[in-house]
């Protein structure tokens, strides 16, 4: 594979995050470079989701620096992260169950809609043109993820694996440069996992999107990611290529347990 990585997209330096007396993350540093697929792994409660939440501005670490595209990040809100090209999916699907797949994906374009609410109600002139433009982009995503057949189906009626795919579609509709995936393959069967892997690789390949993903399935992680960071009890215990990480005794201990 002739893939080219670029500069550092986001550099996390000595991040510590506490909720009251609970230390969620302690002194964690790692970076993500352009166009790579970066995995975060670790046992339950290791702080993986917290890490994603730090990246897209949901949590604000008490200590440490975040350098995003060369600039020190100030305290910011999730929507600001979104407008900087960061999109994400959630561990427990966060879609609008009663809305159709199409409408759900359209919400991914929300930040890019410029015309006013009133103007949209009239659906005339610029608002109409804009809507058509967004719909076009959404249709491309639908085509890309091969979900044409469920376009008009309410999300609540879809099986879990497809809902995950719709969530990915919504994230993609925002045309992100950095995509955060929180356990995209949880609860899927082998075939659905294979599909999802293919889509993740295709997204990375076709659009050059940088991807940070949390995943429990080690087979998947080792297959698709370029670099892996391993967390345990809020601390970083490993970082490197899948092969390096796999053979790291500390990682093996964390996953298999030790008899100290």
């Amino acid at each position: 594979m002739a893939r080219q990585f670029g500069d550092v997209v986001i550099d996390l330096q000595n991040i510590s995050l506490r909720f009251g007396g609970v230390k969620a993350l302690t002194d964690i540093s790692f970076n993500v470079v352009e166009h790579e697929i970066r995995a975060i792994i670790g046992p339950n409660g290791a702080g993986k989701s917290s890490m994603l939440n730090v990246i897209n501005g949901v949590y604000h670490p008490q200590e440490g620096n975040i350098i995003f595209r060369g600039q020190q990040r100030q305290k910011m809100e999730p929507y600001e992260a979104a407008s900087q090209g960061i999109a994400r999916t959630f561990q427990n699907i966060a879609l609008f169950k009663g809305m159709s797949v199409l409408d759900n994906i359209m919400t991914g374009r929300n930040l890019m809609m410029k015309t006013s609410f009133l103007h949209h109600m009239l659906y005339w002139g610029k608002a109409q043109r804009e809507e058509i433009e967004h719909r076009k982009k959404v249709e491309e995503v639908i085509d890309f993820l091969e979900i044409q057949s469920i376009r008009k189906t309410p999300v609540g009626r879809l099986p879990y694996g497809l809902q995950k795919r719709v969530e990915l579609a919504r994230a993609l509709a925002a045309e992100p440069t950095l995509l955060l995936l929180d356990e995209p393959m949880a609860g899927m069967n082998v075939e659905e996992k294979q599909d999802m892997c293919r889509f993740i690789l295709d997204v990375n390949d076709q659009f050059g999107t940088t991807i940070v993903l949390i995943e429990h399935d080690m087979g998947v992680v080792m297959d698709i990611s370029d670099r892996v960071v391993v967390l345990d009890y809020g601390k970083k215990i490993g970082d490197g290529t899948p092969d390096e990480v796999k053979n790291d005794p500390k990682v093996i201990d964390a996953y298999l347990g030790t008899s100290h």
Binding site: M1, A2, R3, F144, D202, D205, Q206
Partner: peptide
């Protein structure tokens, strides 16, 4: 052409 970018 989807997915064909890296076929040489």
């Amino acid at each position: 052409p989807r997915g064909m970018r890296h076929y040489t």
